[in-house]
Design a protein around this nucleic acid. Structure first.
Lengths: 237, 237, 237, 237
DNA sequence: CATGAATGAGCCTTCATTCAT
DNA sequence: TATGAATGAAGGCTCATTCAT
């Protein structure tokens, strides 16, 4: 009995893997239950035994992606000392998530199409919201620690979450633009990722987040850190 | 003959207007040539005389939207004095574009997320790229002016365009997140737009963009400026 | 243009004819848009250009059937003199409708499955109700004439329509039972149709409908009448 | 072993009860083996151990319904004295069967209309025919008793069964029309059930069935009788 | 040019039935 | 015997696109 159940579990993962591949390569429209079944060499009904509809597949994928990012945040937050370095580590995790795990980022974006979100099951919706909330908590926690430690002073009227929202927008926006603009280089943006790292660093400076260090210093230890995050990220799969 | 051509031009605009309305209200899936023809009270073939396929319609809309933003940038850049203020005015235009002209922003996003880009004609693709290039030029121009005027000193290895890319990511990312996250307030982000303005202001400070002024001062004259931009924006339609 | 339209009209009739054949021979479940298209050798979409869904086809057929019966009632009511003979003629028309035009009767029964009725368009529903109302009016009119002429006296508390309802139930019930009971003969009912005629005649007697005549006399002139009704009935098609 | 068999018997009844509920509430299309299994909390295969296919379930239900009516007939025939009163009692049972036990009547109709009959097993078909035969025998028996007692004289050429067929048609037809016509009241038929009772009474008069009594007298003792029939009917379940 | 009927591949989904465990 | 995963034909329906008129 356990063997059977393991097989089923395994196939579920295979379906999701295939769905993610199609989704990333050819977009939401290209994903269809027919095709999924055909490429899996299973009957359509079998796919439906696993997922009641197409939207649930996308939602399941998105949940997995958000979970992955959350885990990366958790680890990144532990890999550095001091509030500013920990925040930088989070940014680093974002970069890796978007580039190294670009399939995940792509699916996350897909969920943001309202039509999908609305058709997915409420259970899944709750799980997704919880996951996002926990991710935010991790980062907002670092900000609050920084305040407690005297490393950072937030202006009146800006909550820790709103503070985080700035960095979130910066990284999310940049990755969205990178993945959807075929020709950033042609309009003069040679190294978009590095430049966003620079903006992030500058933004922290702007808020006076202590301890200051040069961008080059940051880049140096960040590169090392990245290796660790990448390694962990690939281990899970 | 000229009258005829004008009529055709006009109908083309009507088709686009209707398509945009459907697209924004009900999403990409809801847009169909059948429906377009039915609601226009024209035959399907007639629609096909204007646009060779569905994707071209969306691409045409996106182009119009990008053009609109470019025009808003042009005007915004003229409405303020001094490089930092002009840059702030651009940010202000972005906010207004995303909120006031949210149909435009929505279509622009659609082009980014769906697989429309690849299916649209190369001519249109070129036009879109040119338009984006010109928008970027406007803003990068302000940055270069700032450098020339001694208001701003860019670090080595960061081009004017890469500098702009930071602000672009910040605003684009925030608006994308706002429009697709149903519950930012629930995770502690009460006033996302204002907080992004604050981050933009802080980022400029971080780069040491002169002349400095308090956030409150900026907010004050920005509010005034916004009115002018909004008025212009609605005049075009 | 007229030729095209005629072709379309004609095909619509062909679709209905085929649908009726399937419906009568193999029942509601056997009717499918796929099959209709296949047997017509047209594309599925073409069928859908004629009828928006399956239920509408059944409803259209039922309407045609009810119209046919209404016309038969109209004619039958004119083919005889005197209220009782005219009522008998209506009964005769019912018999012919159910036996000679048994496809029509079968479809009429199908409409009585609630699932079909509810899914058909409201326009069609109205038309059907009107048609039934007009059929009832014809027969109730004969009853009222009979009362006016002093041939019949209805008991207090029984409206003309309720009076008709008895005869309607008798004939409808008998035909429904005949068409759905494979083996009436085996349980001792050799000639169900004739026996219902006898019951109808007896029921009229029970109500004292004048002028009385023997069942044999009635049978004699009824046979003649039937020929006329049958002829007319087939002419329409 | 006997306990096991009893359990199986019991489950069979549970399946049928559930199937009837679905059938009556939501129609034939809504009944599916999947749903049956799910709502029973048994595996699909288990359902198939009881019934080889869906049609058999409906046929089994119909058989039960016909059995119920037969029992009601048997009892009704005992509850009154004198042939005419006993026949009236049968009519009364019919009314109660169609209204009080409407689920049964609905399933009986289903068997008649859909293509279920042909797909059900021959064994079941035989059982159904036998049951119908026995029901008919009860009523035809009353008619023969009436003839023997001199209460009724059937015309030449009308068998007792054909005589019964008239009353059967009248009641079956009326109940079928009532249950499928949403708006009898709108076409002037306020009290269809009572009017059919009146027609039945008149028809008996037409045949000269002794002893005559006024319709009001009949109505009076019929009301009393009905109570008894209803009570018995509900006891069985 | 405008028309709109025709096409047919494709979509999502259901469900009766089988069969290995 | 009970289970329930697997099947795959079938169903209803949509829609981008073509093309004869």
């Amino acid at each position: 009995m356990t063997r059977k159940q393991r097989e089923i579990q395994e196939r579920e993962q295979q379906i999701l893997a295939l769905a993610r591949a199609i989704l990333v390569r050819e977009g939401y429209q290209a994903l269809s239950m027919d095709r999924l079944a055909a490429e899996m060499e299973y009957a359509k009904g079998t796919i439906y035994n696993h997922f009641p509809n197409k939207e649930e597949i996308v939602a399941a994928l998105a949940l997995k992606s958000l979970e992955k990012r959350r885990k990366m945040f958790e680890r990144a937050a532990l890999l550095a000392q001091g509030s500013r370095k920990r925040m930088t580590a989070i940014g680093c995790a974002c970069d890796i998530y978007a580039s190294e795990c670009c399939e995940h980022f792509a699916v996350e974006q897909m969920l943001r199409i309202s039509a999908i979100w609305e058709k997915s099951s409420q259970t899944r919706q709750k799980l997704i919201q919880q996951c996002e909330f926990r991710s935010m908590s991790i980062v907002a926690g670092i900000v609050r620690d920084a305040q407690a430690a005297g490393d950072l002073k937030l202006p009146v009227g800006l909550s820790a979450e709103e503070f985080v929202f700035g960095f979130w927008s910066l990284t999310y926006g940049s990755h969205a633009l990178i993945s959807s603009s075929p020709s950033l280089a042609e309009i003069g943006i040679e190294n978009p990722v590095r430049s966003i790292r620079y903006h992030g660093w500058t933004l922290m400076n702007g808020f006076g987040w202590q301890p200051l260090e040069t961008f080059e210093q940051t880049e140096a230890w960040t590169a090392e850190l990245a290796e660790g995050i990448v390694k962990h990220a690939h281990e899970d799969e």
